[in-house]
Simulated scan of single mutants.
Amino acid sequence: MFEYIKGELADLTPTSAIIENNGIGYFIHISLNTYSQLSGHKTVQLYLHQVVREDAHMLYGFIDTREREIFRHLISVSGVGVNTARVMLSSLSPSEIQTAILSNNAKTLQGVKGIGAKSAQRIIIELKDKLGKESEILEISLPQDNTNKEEALSALVMLGFAKNAAYKVVDKIYTANPTSSVEDLIKLALKQL
Rank of each mutant, 00 (worst) to 15 (best):
L109P: 08
E3M: 12
S119Y: 02
F71S: 02
Q50Y: 06
Q121I: 02
S141T: 11
K128H: 02
E3G: 08
F62M: 08
E96S: 13
S119N: 07
L32R: 09
Y47W: 14
L48T: 04
I123G: 07
K113C: 03
V51M: 13
E54R: 04
K168S: 05
L142P: 00
N83I: 05
I125T: 13
N105S: 06
Y26M: 08
R68I: 02
L12H: 07
R53A: 05
Q37A: 10
V182R: 15
T147V: 12
G116H: 05
R72L: 11
V52F: 15
L38H: 08
I18Q: 01
I173D: 00
L127Y: 02
K6E: 14
R86P: 03
Q45T: 15
A165F: 00
V82I: 13
L138F: 10
H29Q: 14
V112D: 04
V157C: 04
L193S: 05
L32F: 06
F71K: 03
G114L: 12
L188A: 15
N21E: 06
D171F: 01
S154W: 11
Y35M: 10
N164K: 11
K118G: 01
V51P: 02
A10E: 12
K172W: 00
L188V: 12
I101E: 03
A100H: 13
E69M: 12
I186M: 05
M88C: 06
L193Q: 06
A176F: 03
I123R: 13
A189F: 09
I140G: 00
K107R: 11
K130Y: 01
I125Q: 08
Q121Y: 01
L109D: 05
S31M: 15
S141G: 13
S135G: 00
L32N: 10
N164H: 08
E134L: 14
F62Y: 09
S39W: 09
G160P: 01
V182E: 11
A162H: 07
I24Y: 15
A117Y: 01
E139I: 14
A155I: 12
L190C: 10
G25N: 06
A120P: 09
T84N: 04
I18H: 00
L59M: 14
T15G: 05
V44K: 13
K130F: 01
V52I: 15
G23T: 00
V82E: 15
S95M: 12
S154Q: 13
S141H: 14
R122V: 03
K42S: 05
T175H: 08
D129V: 06
F71E: 01
I75N: 11
A155N: 05
K172A: 14
A189G: 06
K187F: 08
A155L: 15
L59W: 15
